[in-house]
């Protein structure tokens, strides 16, 4: 599935390591969050970035011990209307001050772009029927935000609120 970041399509630099498969010595890898817990090999010093895929039934706080080692947290939208990942992203950005990439995977919709950005997502998986320009249009549609500390880049925040 195509990835959108910073207003462009990007190639996915991360290699998805399924299940228990070994983690190579170099290259950016994306592993399941459970492997952070009991697989020290994942966290060993290596060439390449580390990303985790966090299911939307798991608390973002579980990542706290390893957060500094993570360059990417991928959150899932099994259906676009399953909105748990919005809160997970919010917790990662706002409560845990995570500075790496937060990626929306699964079936996020372009029409949710504003919500995604304001909760802290900065990379989106999309489908062929919702190309880049649809995402950009959705993002530009409503720039005003009533929630003072949810503003994304370029938003106008309700004054004083």
């Amino acid at each position: 599935m195509p990835l959108i970041k910073n207003g462009h399509y990007i190639d996915d630099a991360y290699i998805r390591i399924e299940g228990e498969a070994p983690v190579p010595d170099d290259g950016d890898v994306l592993v399941d969050a459970v492997r952070l817990k009991d697989d020290t090999a994942v966290l060993r010093p290596r060439q390449g970035k580390l990303g985790v895929l966090l299911m939307n039934t798991v608390d973002a706080e579980e990542l706290v011990p390893h957060l500094s080692k993570l360059a990417l947290v991928a959150l899932e939208f099994p259906q676009f209307h399953d909105g748990r990942a919005f809160s997970q992203a919010r917790v990662l950005r706002h409560t845990l001050h995570f500075k790496g990439e937060i990626r929306a995977t699964g079936k996020p919709m372009a029409d949710q772009a504003g919500h995604l950005v304001r909760c802290g997502f900065d990379c989106f998986e999309t489908n062929t029927r919702q190309p880049l320009d649809v995402w950009q249009r959705a993002l530009d549609a409503v720039r005003g935000v009533y929630q003072r500390d949810y503003a994304g880049l370029g938003d106008v925040v309700r004054k004083d609120l």
Binding site: F86, H115, Y146, L161
Partner: peptide, 13 residues
Amino acid sequence: RQWSSLHPEFCFL
């Protein structure tokens, strides 16, 4: 009303 309008986090409850 204002705070809940298009709330980024709470529109897909």
